[in-house]
């Protein structure tokens, strides 16, 4: 199945802004984060098709996953 992965801000460095990947059915966002060697502690907001979700979300064909870095300054 095909999934679009979008990365934001600093997570793009050495990676990409948006790319389509073919993954096994039922892959989780956690596994995608791991595949791209992103540390779990770096990750903040996670969206699936523009809606908030979490690491355990199992993806379906055509899903768009957006991964944002954790941001905490004020």
């Amino acid at each position: 199945m095909q999934v679009t992965v979008k990365l934001f801000a600093g997570l793009r460095q050495g990676r990409f802004a948006a790319e389509k990947f073919v993954f096994d059915d039922g892959i989780t966002i956690a596994r995608i984060v791991e595949k791209h060697e992103i540390s779990g502690s770096e990750v903040g907001i996670l969206l699936c098709n523009g809606r908030h979700t979490d690491f355990s979300r199992k993806l379906e064909d055509g899903d768009i996953v957006s991964i944002f870095p954790k941001i905490g300054g004020g």
Binding site: T28, A30, G44, L46, H52, F55, G72
Partner: peptide, 13 residues
Amino acid sequence: QIYPKTYPESFPE
């Protein structure tokens, strides 16, 4: 949702 508290178990750290 903005600051997820749980991390994938696959990250031992």
